[in-house]
Design a protein around this nucleic acid. Sequence first.
DNA 1: TTGCGTGCAAAGGTTTTGCATGGCA
DNA 2: TGCCATGCAAAACCTTTGCACGCAA
Lengths: 140, 140
Amino acid sequence: MAPKTQYKTKQREELVKFLETVPGQHITVADVCEHFRSKGNSIGTTTVYRQMEKLVDEGVLNKYILDAQAPACFEYIDKDKDCHEHECFHCKCEKCGKLIHLHCEELAEFEQHIMNHHGFSINPLRTVFYGICDDCKVAE
Amino acid sequence: MAPKTQYKTKQREELVKFLETVPGQHITVADVCEHFRSKGNSIGTTTVYRQMEKLVDEGVLNKYILDAQAPACFEYIDKDKDCHEHECFHCKCEKCGKLIHLHCEELAEFEQHIMNHHGFSINPLRTVFYGICDDCKVAE
DNA sequence: TTGCGTGCAAAGGTTTTGCATGGCA
DNA sequence: TGCCATGCAAAACCTTTGCACGCAA
């Protein structure tokens, strides 16, 4: 059961502060732990898992599952820069890791269609379209 | 190292025969094992993992990795069906975890739009739409 | 006979959970 | 004071690997 209020703890503050310094980069839980350990300012692994999960729910982070047996990747989304308007979908290139932001009419229509015909309301914060970008396609 | 020749074993035959009876459905390794166990005709879990992986390489199965700690989903591709696009998209409910798979015209159009106007070819195997399903929405 | 396939047991690694302690409001 | 958060240890989980044996070609 999700708690009603979110406490502002030292660990959470430190974690968010660090994540803000690496927008658009892939970060694993192990990376985060290592970062704080090397600074002599350790945060428990469990805490990192739990806070990162919350941040995903809040739309602050995206979570990428790239492979079954590999650690999950998280990515900080800088909303002030990119997507402060309203709804913004993201495309993530599986090759080069580039993140593309989409703002367009058709996306809103698509979202409506899924809503009306399939009874499902998409969460743009969490949803990421994986695939291959033009640059990488050409490079092949 | 991949072997040069593919042997036709009893286990592989049984496995493929079963998969052919559930085209377009989501099947996990555990599902497969349970099926054969209930028939008193067990196949080793390791063998199922290894054969399924081969079938993915051969293009007989699709493999979907939906969540970090959840088992991978496999899906038999019915080549006899005339739909040229075998792969389907998925919606995953963030509340109840239900998985919906979508086969529909609008999705193909949407995919085309992303391709033509945004230069990005989506990989349906890895892409999951997160959101809230009707049942959970009503329950709120 | 050669080499691939099988399946048990064990390992591997990530993520989750139990529980007592500590901190925020 | 009442929750919520933390973090250690341990569990849970899916998946892979080692190895001896069996079976297809």
